[in-house]
Design a protein around this nucleic acid. Structure first.
Length: 589
RNA sequence: GGUCCCGUGGUGUAGCGGUUAACAUGCGGCCCUGUCAAGGCCGAGAUCGCGGGUUCGAAUCCCGUCGGGGCCGCCA
């Protein structure tokens, strides 16, 4: 038997018992006449004491960090004054009667027993060692608890967990698909699911009523700190529900989860705030606002209606907006600091940045000479800006102004530490537009997806102005991240047809791509809707981690490579032949 | 596709035109009976990612390239 107990569980009540433990050498302190070993497993650390004069415990002296040992000994209370309050097992120690090397270890590429920053490429190459570290163990265990909580909570409420295929069908809309060539059907391809969207809707047609799945989703797009090519969603769908039924269910789930799993975190508000898409963009410049702090955006078009400043005039004439935010206590920014902000704004697409510094010696800044005293007064009373603050103006198209000011807002959040890291600002963003115009391809795209239900009262606008059609789509946002999105779905074939037509899909195309959906909806489809919270992002935020890779056991790097296994890698000639694939690698541009 | 930042012993850093390339930690050896980031002494370990250029002289400046990361585009 390798062990009778785990390293983390021994307490004074075990004193006198003979126990057998197995684990890794966390640290070793050899004093010559006595040797201490900290033996570690995932449950904790316990101190083993070995007397080197006893040959059966001699291995304690030769052991090095991360060797795997088997230890037998007697649990005893530590001598008075030698307790370690930093260890859960710190009141006791194991007096070893046997120390056996189960497996030695080479010196490691980085230290397990220390949470020192290590280049991520090295961590990813030796991910199995990185995962042995306390930080990663904590994250992966938290992730397990989150998923377990979801399964329990939803099961108790009548939800059925159903698996859907990984090999499915490519779809025209949305993200780039990962394709899988078919051996049995030459020239044909499966697609790995971007989400189980269609399948969960068909499960509603099938009468399952309340479905969920911890579902792997795959999208072949460029990576970011919060985006991996494969990620996990809580996929969820309900029949005979309206929007608020779905929101209430998910809000209840995460409110209860935070209370149980994250007692050190506070919710910003309960019930969660709700913003319309329009309000969110107007006030924060984004549809995923971080509500942990203020610094809202203000529109100044009215105040500058009579401006003499040519730049502002031109923007107003061309239908743009003048908006600002107030950076508290930043009036003393130097010329260089303001220049750096300007550069930042230009990187976001803005043409420039105007500033107004409200200093004790008066108003300064690049916009000072263009802004009349009464305009400045109006800005102060609108925004509440005070002496010592720096007002930042962007005059541009609404889209660029919002995007730039939103980015500035987050920049100042981090720079001025405006957001409480222990605050969870969940919120709902509702009433998204149904369609977005794709300038590049001169056509309408679905803002969420083509199965989203337009607002009934907006149906006439299909003929007049599709840009004004709102939908029953909604997002869950948390601390500036989009953490879920969903919608009430179309269950009427006539409305579905209208949407497909507006998206420019030809009838044959609709049949080929979505025929199974259209047909299914003709056999008694219940009204239904759902959503899909992103597990990785949520756990990342819950674990206070700066990127999604820290909560995924084996993530890809920014180039989509697995640095440990070195994937992707070439396929053999034989494999390619079986799949009827010939490579064409000549283009290198 | 674009753009910005980073590559110095195993790991983390210093050095930023002339150094035997420094420090910590880890590693090896020796000493040490109460430590818990144990301590003390000794030692090994880096052609400074790679290639080219500038210079009397390059880890240091320039160009390219490779690797890694952030952001924009993209992500229904």
């Amino acid at each position: 038997m390798y062990r009778t107990h785990t390293c983390g569980e021994l307490r004074p009540l075990h004193v006198g018992q003979t126990v057998t433990l197995a684990g890794w050498v966390h640290r070793q302190r050899d004093h010559g006449g006595i040797t201490f070993l900290d033996l570690r497993d995932r449950y904790g650390i316990v101190q083993v004491v070995a007397d080197p004069s006893r040959p059966e415990v001699h291995a304690a002296q030769e052991a090095r960090a991360e060797w795997v040992l088997g230890v037998t000994g007697v649990v005893r209370r530590r001598p008075a004054g030698a307790e370690n309050p930093h260890l859960a097992t710190g009141e006791i120690e194991i007096e070893a009667t046997r120390v056996e090397v189960l497996n030695p270890a080479k010196p490691l590429p980085f230290l397990i027993n220390k949470d020192e920053e290590t280049e991520e490429a090295v961590r990813l190459k030796y991910r199995y060692l990185d995962l042995r570290r306390e930080r990663m163990q904590r994250n992966i265990i938290l992730r397990h608890k989150v998923v377990k909580f979801i399964r329990d909570y939803l099961s108790e409420r009548g939800f059925i967990e159903i698996e859907t295929p990984m090999l499915f069908k490519t779809t025209p809309e949305g993200a780039r698909d990962y394709l899988v060539p078919s051996r049995l059907q030459p020239g044909m391809f499966y697609a790995l699911p971007q989400s189980p969207q269609q399948l969960k809707q068909l499960l509603m047609v099938a009468g399952f009523d309340r479905y969920f799945q911890i579902a792997r989703c795959l999208r072949d797009e460029d990576l970011r700190g919060d985006r991996q090519p494969e990620f996990t969603q809580l996929d969820l769908e309900m029949s005979f529900v309206e929007r608020d039924d779905v929101l209430d269910m998910v809000e209840g789930l995460f409110t209860a989860m935070v209370k149980q799993l994250l007692p050190h975190k506070r919710l910003l508000a309960s019930p969660w705030p709700r913003l319309t898409y329009r309000q969110a963009v107007e006030r924060f410049g984004t549809d995923k606002p971080d509500l942990r702090f203020g610094m809202e955006l203000y529109t100044l078009n009215d105040i500058f209606a009579q401006t003499d400043f040519m730049v502002f005039q031109n923007v107003l004439k061309s239908g743009g907006v003048i908006k600002c935010i107030v950076a508290p206590g930043c009036a003393d920014y130097t010329r260089k600091e303001v220049d750096d902000l300007t550069t930042f704004c230009k990187e976001q697409g803005a043409k420039g940045l105007a500033t107004l510094a409200l200093t004790a010696e008066g108003v300064k800044g690049t916009a000072q000479k263009f802004i009349k005293p009464q305009e400045e007064q109006a800005i102060q009373s609108l925004t509440g800006a005070q002496t010592g603050d720096l007002v930042l103006f962007i005059a541009d198209s609404a889209a660029v102004a919002n995007k730039t000011l939103s980015a500035l807002r987050l920049l100042f959040r981090d720079r001025l530490k405006l957001a409480d890291p222990n605050l969870l600002a969940f919120a709902w963003v509702v009433d998204f537009p149904m369609f977005e115009y794709n300038e590049e391809e001169k056509k309408w795209d679905a803002a969420h997806h083509p199965f989203t239900m337009p607002k009934m009262e907006d149906l006439p606008k299909f003929e007049t102005d599709p840009s004004q059609i709102l939908s029953d789509a909604y997002d869950m946002v948390l601390n500036g991240y989009e953490t879920a999105s969903g919608s009430i779905r179309i269950h009427r074939p006539d409305i579905q047809q209208k949407v497909f037509q507006l998206l420019g899909l030809k009838d044959e195309e609709i049949q080929a791509k979505f025929g199974h959906m259209i047909e299914a909806f003709q056999y008694g489809a219940p009204p239904h809707g759902g959503m899909a919270p992103g597990i990785d992002r949520l756990v990342m935020i819950f674990a206070d981690e700066p990127n999604i890779r820290e909560v995924i056991a084996f993530p890809k790097n920014q180039a989509g490579r697995d640095l440990m296994a070195d994937a992707p890698s070439p396929a053999s000639e034989k494999q390619l032949n079986e799949l009827h694939i010939r490579l064409d690698l000549k283009k290198t541009d």
